Simulated assay, not measured.
Amino acid sequence: MVFLGSEALAAGAVTRHQLTHHHEMLHRDVYIARGAELTPSDKARAAWLWSRRRAVVAGLSAAALHGCKWIDAAEPAELNQRSQHKVAGIMLHCERLDSAEISVVHGIPATTPARTAFDLGRRRGPVSAVLRLDALLQATTLTVTDVRALIGSHGGARGVVQLRHVLALADDGAESPQETRLRLVLTKAGMRPSRTQIEVYDEYRFIGRLDMGWPEWKVGVQYDGAQHWTDPRQRARDIEQDARYRELGWRIIRVDADLLRRRQLTIIRRVRGDLDAAGAPHPLPNMKKMARFLGNLAI
Results as ranks from 00 to 15, higher is better:
153 S>Y: 03
135 A>Q: 13
1 M>G: 09
39 T>G: 02
188 K>W: 03
71 I>R: 05
154 H>P: 00
276 D>C: 11
17 H>P: 00
159 G>S: 07
166 V>K: 04
247 E>R: 14
273 G>H: 10
224 D>I: 09
262 R>E: 13
244 R>N: 03
218 K>V: 00
241 Q>G: 06
205 R>I: 06
151 I>M: 11
101 E>R: 04
53 R>I: 07
28 R>V: 09
222 Q>A: 03
104 V>R: 04
156 G>L: 11
81 Q>K: 14
248 L>K: 01
226 A>L: 14
221 V>M: 04
33 A>E: 13
89 G>C: 12
124 R>G: 00
116 T>R: 09
213 G>T: 05
40 P>M: 06
241 Q>P: 00
19 L>G: 06
171 D>V: 03
274 D>L: 08
259 L>A: 14
144 V>T: 15
291 A>E: 06
61 S>A: 11
173 G>A: 12
80 N>P: 04
294 L>S: 12
143 T>M: 08
253 I>S: 10
233 R>Q: 11
33 A>I: 05
142 L>D: 07
79 L>C: 08
81 Q>N: 02
84 Q>I: 10
289 K>E: 14
105 V>S: 01
266 T>P: 00
4 L>D: 00
80 N>E: 10
182 L>I: 13
276 D>M: 13
127 V>C: 04
289 K>F: 02
156 G>R: 15
275 L>A: 11
259 L>N: 05
159 G>D: 12
259 L>H: 09
279 G>R: 05
68 C>F: 01
164 R>E: 15
162 Q>M: 15
92 L>G: 09
10 A>N: 06
249 G>C: 09
262 R>H: 15
8 A>T: 10
226 A>G: 00
133 L>S: 08
86 K>F: 02
170 A>M: 01
71 I>D: 07
145 T>L: 06
47 A>D: 06
253 I>N: 01
131 L>M: 09
204 Y>T: 13
288 K>Q: 14
180 T>L: 06
1 M>Y: 01
169 L>W: 01
94 C>N: 15
215 P>E: 00
251 R>W: 02
37 E>P: 00
222 Q>E: 15
204 Y>I: 13
152 G>Y: 02
246 R>H: 12
102 I>A: 05
197 Q>S: 12
198 I>Q: 03
109 P>E: 02
49 L>Y: 10
107 G>L: 07
113 P>D: 10
204 Y>P: 00
154 H>R: 15
255 V>H: 05
2 V>Q: 03
165 H>M: 11
270 R>G: 08
20 T>I: 04
253 I>M: 02
252 I>A: 07
164 R>G: 07
173 G>L: 10
284 L>P: 03
252 I>Q: 04
161 V>T: 13
155 G>Q: 13
200 V>F: 02
98 D>P: 00
290 M>Y: 01
34 R>D: 08
198 I>P: 01
206 F>V: 09
51 S>Y: 09
220 G>D: 04
249 G>I: 10
206 F>A: 08
121 G>D: 06
51 S>V: 12
138 Q>S: 12
37 E>V: 14
10 A>Q: 11
198 I>D: 04
86 K>T: 15
137 L>P: 02
269 R>W: 04
121 G>A: 04
74 A>K: 08
259 L>Q: 14
5 G>E: 05
204 Y>V: 13
217 W>T: 01
205 R>A: 15
51 S>M: 08
234 Q>R: 15
59 G>K: 04
